[in-house]
C-alpha cells in the first residue's frame, strides 16, 4: 500500500476507533478488525487476516495490540506498525489517565466505595465464568496431561506460592518437549 499521509491517517483512525469502542478485550476486537480491514477497507484478504489472528493469539501480550502490529506491518512496514500501535494504545491511555485522577479523589467517598464493592463481586463472577468456560474445554479433551498441568499449576501457584514466571516457563518448555516427542511417536498427548 502506498505510504502517504492519507493512508497513515486512515490506518490510525481505524485502529483508534476499534480500540476506543471495543469492550472486553482480544476476543471481541478480532471479528471487528476483520470487518474493518477485510470487508470495509479491503486492505487485507480474509486468509491473511486469519493468519494474523492466529499469530496474534500465539504471542504473549494483548491480542488487540499484537493484531494491530501485524496489520500495520503488513500494510506499511515499520511505520505502519508504529501508527497502528499508537492508534490502539492511545484510547485506553487517555481514558485510564483521566479515571486514575478521579479515582484518587473519589475512592474514599462512601457511595463510590459501595459501588466498587459491588463491582468486585461482579468481577469475581466474570472471572469464574471465564475459568469455567476455559477449564471446561480442557476437561472435555479428556487428555490427562493438560488436566494434570491445570491442577498442578494451581497447587504450585496458589498453595505453594511458586513464582508465576517459573511456572509459565516450565509449562511452556514441557509443551515444546512433549509435542516434539509426540511428532516422532505419532501420539497426541496434548
Amino acid at each position: 500500500m502506498e505510504k502517504n499521509l492519507k493512508n497513515y491517517f486512515r490506518l490510525f483512525k481505524s485502529t483508534f476507533f476499534l480500540s476506543a469502542f471495543t469492550f472486553g478485550g482480544g476476543y471481541v476486537i478480532i471479528p471487528l478488525m476483520k470487518k474493518k480491514f477485510v470487508d470495509e477497507l479491503e486492505w487485507l484478504e480474509e486468509e491473511e487476516m486469519l493468519n494474523i489472528v492466529a499469530m496474534a493469539q500465539s504471542s504473549p501480550g494483548a491480542v488487540a495490540v499484537n493484531a494491530a502490529i501485524l496489520v500495520g506491518w503488513r500494510l506499511m512496514g515499520l511505520s505502519g506498525a508504529s501508527v497502528a500501535i499508537a492508534g490502539t494504545v492511545l484510547p485506553p491511555l487517555v481514558t485510564l489517565s483521566v479515571i486514575s485522577l478521579f479515582y484518587a479523589v473519589f475512592r474514599h467517598n462512601a457511595a463510590v466505595s459501595a459501588i466498587f464493592k459491588g463491582m468486585t463481586a461482579g468481577i469475581c463472577a466474570v472471572i469464574f465464568d471465564v475459568v469455567i468456560s476455559m477449564g471446561g474445554k480442557i476437561l472435555k479433551t479428556k487428555k490427562p496431561l493438560p488436566i494434570l498441568i491445570m491442577a498442578g499449576a494451581f497447587v504450585v501457584y496458589y498453595v505453594l506460592r511458586v513464582n508465576v514466571i517459573h511456572i509459565i516457563l516450565f509449562c511452556g518448555a514441557l509443551g515444546a518437549l512433549v509435542s516434539l516427542r509426540d511428532k516422532k511417536t505419532g501420539k497426541e498427548r496434548i
Binding site: 468481577i123 491445570m150 514441557l174 509443551g175 509435542s179
Partner: peptide
C-alpha cells in the same frame, strides 16, 4: 510450528489455573 503449538497447548491449562488463583484471592 510443532513446538510452538505444543507450548501454547500447555500454556492454556496453565493460564486457567493462574486466572482461577487470582479469581480466588479476589473472591
Amino acid at each position: 510450528l510443532t513446538a510452538l503449538k505444543g507450548v501454547l497447548a500447555c500454556l492454556r491449562p496453565t493460564a486457567v489455573a493462574l486466572i482461577f488463583s487470582a479469581g480466588l484471592s479476589v473472591l
